[in-house]
Computed example of a mutant assay.
Amino acid sequence: MTINEIQDELIEDFSFFEDWMAKYEYIIQLGKELPLIDEVYKTDDLLIKGCQSRVWLRADYIDDRVIFTADSDAIITKGLVSLMIKVLSGQKAEDIVQADLYFIDAIGLKEHLSPTRANGLVAMVKQMKLYAMAFSARY
């Protein structure tokens, strides 16, 4: 699936929920399904700068695709990074770099996050795109 197809699917998934409590529960559930980063990678150099919670993000380049794994010590943040991984992991580096992540606004995420969480989400996106840029420059 393309990045936009995945985003469209997420927008549809979120449209089924009546209120933001249900949406938060869904985000937390996604966090529980997150493919966790190996404990050996929970190092300071893999922490995302700009997140209030601790979020570790690792990127690998396998078969011409960027594969992300992550973890966080906060359940909502873990769900947010899980959303980003769902959209971007397994995609080509150039596609990640050029991706317009419109689903964030379409599902109302930004306005329903605290300012610190919204900044953290921006930091996650930035870090994922930086990894993708590095891979596309290298390969």
Score class of each variant (00 low, 15 high):
Ile6Phe: 06
Gln7Ala: 08
Asp8Ile: 09
Asp8Lys: 12
Glu12Ile: 04
Asp13Ala: 05
Asp13Asn: 12
Phe16Ile: 12
Asp19Val: 01
Ala22Cys: 08
Ala22Leu: 11
Glu25Trp: 06
Ile27Asp: 01
Gln29Cys: 13
Gln29Leu: 14
Leu30Ala: 07
Leu30Phe: 02
Gly31Gln: 00
Pro35Trp: 10
Asp38Asn: 15
Glu39Trp: 11
Thr43Lys: 13
Asp44Arg: 04
Asp45Leu: 13
Lys49Pro: 12
Arg54Gly: 01
Arg54Gln: 12
Arg54Val: 05
Val55Thr: 05
Leu57Ile: 07
Ala59Phe: 07
Asp60Val: 14
Ile62Phe: 15
Asp64Gln: 15
Asp64Pro: 02
Val66Tyr: 04
Phe68Met: 00
Asp73Ala: 07
Asp73Ile: 09
Ile76Glu: 04
Gly79Leu: 05
Leu80Ile: 05
Leu83Trp: 03
Met84Cys: 11
Met84Ile: 02
Val87Pro: 00
Ser89Tyr: 03
Gly90Arg: 05
Glu94Ala: 15
Val97Ile: 14
Gln98Thr: 10
Ala99Gln: 09
Leu101Trp: 01
Tyr102Asn: 14
Asp105Lys: 01
Ala106Met: 11
His112Cys: 11
Thr116Ser: 15
Ala118Asn: 12
Ala123Tyr: 08
Ala123Phe: 03
Met124Cys: 08
Lys126His: 14
Tyr131Arg: 02
Phe135Met: 00
Tyr139Gln: 14
Tyr139Trp: 12
